[in-house]
Design a protein around this nucleic acid. Structure first.
Length: 764
DNA sequence: TTAGGGTTGG
């Protein structure tokens, strides 16, 4: 078995004799003789695992696992145990398979002496172990230790064979992997069991729909979203209507994994005993990558602030109240921290029938919404615990007119039946979406009385002027009848705006040629990176006076050559968060990772005599989440050595504008471009908003990568222009607008632009 | 046994 695939080896012992002997070049080292600085490449330490700590991640994302080894040959000696610190893939593997009491052998470690002496009988050195350092780990597992657990006797566990979905045969019982393409969360069937219907796909492009039954809800797969990956053991295959279908058989067992590329590979299961090894982790990772380009995963589930009438959506929320309504319907009161922009329907129920914390329900009266669930969902709804986190699938938003025809309110229904996966799932607190939701709910300020807030918006203006307060208001009718250019102060209401999908409002603007362009998507960047990976790093350009270079070749089949050039600073200590680096041959993901860790990342490629920037359709600079682009028309890229002038500064701030300037790049700026339709008693006009960050007080450069800011902007727009209200109930905006002429061959057009205006501080 | 995917009635 090669070491890259399986850095940790399991050796089975039979009658105290290892079946697989250790490599002969390894020599045993005594704990007492360890010394810092010696070469232990071909030496090993053997001991019994007496203690292990939970697997954790270091700040840079490296897995870290710590165990304590006891020297069983020298139990009487004063120092008989030592800490072993394991990093990276090895940490992960060890955490998965080691057991206290097992014999653990580590070779090729590094000895590090601790600054202070220990008093607990442990060695005053520890061992550092990682694949990169060339370490090897051998674990002796004795068959028969704790035989009830499959994990304890991994080395003798049966090897499972997994059948691709295009090779399934009628009447067989098989094991399989699949990506969830569709699912119905468990519901109470018409028989005696819970039922969950799951449709799987895999890289064979075959599809399998499974009907899974179990009297115990916990025994069905814990699927939370399309794209999750499942492993089924012992599922029965039958032919039905000319197609294969899966159905639970006696020994059915399942594991479910998050389908997100890069997420930790942690199985969700109800069974305490399962096998899961390196090979299977690899399968999950491969399926994730396949799924990423072959399955359309429904976008981020809707928030209440983003609901539209007449649609179906999945809502992740917290249950704050519940009530029986009648025999065929049941009320759930839920919230997700955002405010539904429409007036929402309140289901009349007797106060005594409503379960939930009264104070909280009162505080949340403007944030919580009523969801009426029907028929087969009632029984499950009754069993839900107030306070739990739910995902409700395929809620229907129905628009209904109240007595007053202009005010439409919105109703939330979970209709009967299970079409389209309609149903309710309880999410555990460990679910990443729940963690995010909880954090958001905790940030919501409940002391703020929202009704008063809305009333305040009716009376005062939701926007304020940042200059020219002395100007008096002009009616819109007067403005549209006057020649341009001029400047006005107006008081108007925002009847509608475009684009409604707010992320579409973000563009890139060149202040030199005044052009606007779309923000390039990741595919464009990916393509450029692929192209430039064809140019190998030029070794003559490595390690110059102003940067240090590190290079390596990837271990996969592609054998990519990567070079990273760290710009040197005139200081003893250089922190990653202050460092600029240039990278050749990196992938999208690698570059994003580096950009999070280091101050600046510049993707480059080698020429004969210097490094150069890539095509300007790619960002020329990445800082954190923000990608900086240059104008193709107005830039004249210069060689990278021009950067050395900034690097020579005492404390380079690495400002994007400064970097752009020395590299001959005309920096494009992120900007919100929106069209506001403004009205007052006298008329209407369309005014353009052209805003870098002043109006929303949100930098346009960050909106595309920051969910929180997107939500904040959506809520701002909902306040400025609450959907479903009649004109009289819309809030007032105070704005400055300027008129200007745009001439083309045919005619002269007057346009309007908003300026020196910002959203009032207490509005968001 | 149950369901066998494909929205809307209250």
């Amino acid at each position: 078995m090669n070491k890259a695939a399986m850095p940790v080896q399991l050796l089975k012992i039979i009658k105290e004799q290892s079946e697989t002997p250790l490599p002969s070049h390894l020599q045993k080292e005594n704990l007492q003789h360890l010394q810092e600085g010696c070469d232990y490449t071909n030496r090993y330490i053997q001991g019994i695992i007496t203690l292990s700590y939970p697997l954790t991640k270091l700040r840079d994302g490296t897995d870290f696992f710590k165990i304590v080894l006891q020297d069983s040959d020298n139990l009487s000696s004063q120092i008989n145990s030592i800490n072993v610190l394991i990093y990276g893939k090895m940490a992960e593997d060890c955490a998965k398979i080691i057991r206290h009491g097992e014999t653990f052998i580590v070779a090729g470690f590094k000895v590090v002496k601790l600054p202070t002496a220990r008093e607990d009988g442990r060695h005053d050195c520890h061992l550092e172990v990682s694949e990169e350092a060339g370490s090897a780990i051998y674990i002796y597992t004795k068959p028969g230790i704790n035989a009830a657990s499959e994990t304890a006797s991994l080395s003798v566990a049966p090897k499972y064979v997994y059948t691709p979905l295009n090779h399934l045969k009628d009447g067989t019982i098989v094991n399989l992997y699949g990506v969830v393409k569709f699912f119905k969360p468990p519901y109470i069937s018409k028989g005696t069991d819970y039922c969950s219907v799951v449709t799987l796909v895999d890289p064979s492009n075959a599809k399998l729909t499974c009907s899974l039954f179990n009297g115990n809800l916990d025994s069905l797969p814990k699927i939370y979203k399309v794209g999750d990956i499942v492993r089924f053991h012992r599922i029965k295959i039958r032919e039905y209507n000319g197609q294969m279908q899966g159905i639970t058989s006696g020994g059915f067992a399942s594991l479910t994994f998050d389908g997100t590329v890069g997420a930790p590979v942690v199985p969700r299961t109800s069974s305490r005993v399962y096998t899961f090894m390196d090979e299977e982790q690899k399968t999950i990772e491969e399926l994730r990558i396949w799924a990423a380009s072959n399955i359309s995963i429904s976008g981020p589930a809707a928030k209440l602030s983003g609901v539209q009438p007449m649609l179906f959506f999945d809502l992740t929320c917290q249950l704050v109240g519940k009530a029986k309504v009648d025999g065929s319907s049941f009320l759930l009161k839920v919230w997700d921290g955002t405010k539904c922009p429409y007036p929402t329907w309140k289901v009349p129920v007797e106060a005594k029938d409503l379960e939930g914390e009264k104070v909280l329900l009162q505080q949340l009266r403007n944030l919580a919404v009523d969801i009426l669930v029907y028929d087969n969902h009632v029984q499950l709804a009754e069993s839900l615990k107030v306070g739990s986190f739910l995902r409700i699938y395929s809620i229907h938003t129905k628009q209904a007119s109240a007595d007053n025809k202009d005010v439409s309110h919105i109703e939330f229904h979970l209709h009967g039946g299970t079409c389209y996966g309609r149903g309710i799932g309880v999410l555990p607190e460990s679910n990443p979406d729940v963690k995010e939701l909880k954090a958001f709910l905790e940030s919501v300020d409940l002391t703020d009385d929202l009704e008063l807030h809305l009333q305040r918006c009716q009376q005062l203006s939701v926007t304020v002027l940042t200059d020219h307060q002395d100007l008096s208001n002009t009616e819109l009718k007067t403005i549209t009848r006057s020649p341009a250019p001029q400047q006005y102060r107006i008081r108007a209401k925002l009847r509608t705006y475009k684009p409604q999908k707010l992320h579409q409002s973000v563009k890139l603007h060149c202040s030199k040629c005044n052009s606007l362009q779309e923000v390039p998507d990741r595919d464009a960047f990916d393509l450029i990176l692929h192209d430039s990976a064809g140019t190998a790093p030029n070794p003559e350009l490595h390690n110059t006076s102003w940067y240090e270079s590190v290079t390596w070749t990837t271990q996969d089949q592609k054998k990519r050559e990567i070079a990273i050039h760290f710009v040197k600073r005139d200081e003893m200590l250089q922190h990653p968060e202050d460092t600029l680096l240039m990278i050749e041959g990196g992938t999208l993901k690698e570059i994003w990772k580096l950009a999070k860790r280091f101050k600046c990342v510049i993707p480059v490629r080698s020429t004969e005599d210097d490094l150069e920037l890539l095509d300007l359709s790619a960002p020329f600079l990445l800082q954190g989440n923000v990608k900086y682009y240059g104008c193709k028309q107005c830039s004249t890229p210069k060689p990278m050595k021009n950067l050395s002038s900034i690097a020579a500064e005492q404390q380079p701030s690495w400002e994007p504008t400064e970097i752009a300037q020395v590299l001959g790049i005309q920096l494009l700026q992120y900007v919100f471009v929106m069209k506001f339709t403004l009205v007052d008693e006298t008329g209407a006009l369309n005014a353009y908003l052209f805003d870098y960050e002043k109006f929303f007080q949100i930098p346009a450069s960050e909106i595309l990568t920051n969910n929180f800011l997107q939500q904040k902007m959506q809520m701002t727009m909902n306040t400025l222009c609450p959907p479903g209200r009649k004109l009289g109930d819309l809030p007032w905006l105070e704005c400055f607008i300027r008129s200007y002429n745009v001439r083309d061959e045919m005619k002269n057009q007057v346009y309007y632009q908003i300026f020196d205006t910002t959203v009032a501080e207490d509005v968001v």
